[in-house]
C-alpha cells in the first residue's frame, strides 16, 4: 500500500512516516503543495494524507485538481482548521476523511486503515466475525445460530465494528460514523454503548469478540 504525505511540518511528518512505515505502509513525502501535486498526478497512490495549509498550492486546491483529473485515491485531510464548517468544506471538495490537529497517531492509523479497507470493500449481503453474523437481507444478527435482538443504534455500532474487522476503531470514529457527531461529548457515553452491545453479543458465548484497545478504542476480531 503506497501512501503520499503532503505536509510542510518536517517534525510532524517524520513522526507520521515512521509510524506508518512500521505498520507496513510505503510512504512518500512532499514538503510543499507543488511537489505534492506533481507526485500525486504522476504516481498511483492508494492514499493521500494532505495538510490544508501548505506553501505553494494549498491542500483543498490539490484535492480539487486531483479529482478533476479523475484521480480516485482515498484522501485524508490533516488540518489545524478543525471546526465543523471547515470539515464540511474539506469533504465537499472531495476528501474522504478529515482529521483535525492535534490528533493521536493511533487515531490517524485507524482512519488510514479504515480508508484503505473501503477500497476493497464490496457491497455484501452479510458480515461475519467468528460465529457472529449480520445478515443484511433481513437485518438479523446471530451468534452460533442463536438470534440476537439489537436496537437500531446497537446494530449500527456492530455493523461499523464488523466492517472494520481486526482493525482498531477509535471512539471518535464511532461517534462520527454511528451517530454522526463530529464532536466529543462530555462523558464517554460510547463506552456505555459498547458495554451494552457486549452484554448482548459476548455475554454467555464464551469467547469475547469485542476487545478494548487501551487508550485508543475497540476492535472486533476472533
Amino acid at each position: 500500500m503506497k501512501i503520499l504525505l503532503i505536509e510542510d511540518d518536517r517534525e510532524g511528518a517524520k513522526f507520521v512516516i515512521k509510524g506508518l512505515s512500521q505498520s507496513g505502509f510505503v510512504v512518500d513525502h512532499a514538503l510543499n503543495g507543488r511537489d505534492g501535486l506533481y507526485l500525486a498526478m504522476n504516481n498511483n497512490y492508494d492514499l493521500l494524507i494532505v495538510d490544508r495549509m501548505l506553501p505553494g498550492v494549498d491542500g483543498l486546491s490539490i484535492i480539487k485538481m486531483l479529482r478533476a483529473a479523475n484521480k480516485n485515491m482515498q484522501i485524508l485531510i490533516l488540518s489545524a482548521l478543525g471546526n465543523v464548517d471547515e470539515r464540511v468544506e474539506g469533504l465537499k471538495n472531495g476528501a474522504d476523511d478529515y482529521l483535525p490537529k492535534p490528533y493521536a497517531f493511533s487515531e490517524l492509523l485507524a482512519r488510514v486503515e479504515a480508508l484503505l479497507r473501503r477500497n476493497r470493500e464490496n457491497p455484501t449481503s452479510s458480515l461475519q466475525v467468528g460465529d457472529l453474523k449480520i445478515n443484511f437481507e433481513n437485518y438479523s444478527v446471530t451468534r452460533g445460530g442463536k438470534k440476537i435482538t439489537l436496537k437500531p443504534t446497537e446494530f449500527r455500532l456492530l455493523e461499523y465494528l464488523m466492517r472494520h474487522k481486526g482493525q482498531v476503531v477509535t471512539r471518535t470514529m464511532l461517534l462520527e460514523n454511528v451517530w454522526g457527531y463530529n464532536f466529543d461529548p462530555q462523558t464517554n457515553v460510547v463506552d456505555v454503548h459498547i458495554s451494552r452491545l457486549r452484554s448482548k453479543i459476548d455475554k454467555g458465548f464464551g469467547k469475547e469478540l469485542i476487545k478494548t484497545v487501551r487508550g485508543i478504542g475497540y476492535k472486533i476480531e476472533e
Binding site: V84, Y181, N182, F183, P185, Q186, T187
Partner: peptide
C-alpha cells in the same frame, strides 16, 4: 441552524442532567 452545534448543546444539557 447548525445540526452539529445544536446536537452538541443538547448532549451537554442531557449530560448535566444525567450527572
Amino acid at each position: 441552524g447548525s445540526a452539529q452545534l445544536l446536537s452538541q448543546s443538547m448532549l451537554n444539557i442531557l449530560d448535566n442532567a444525567v450527572k
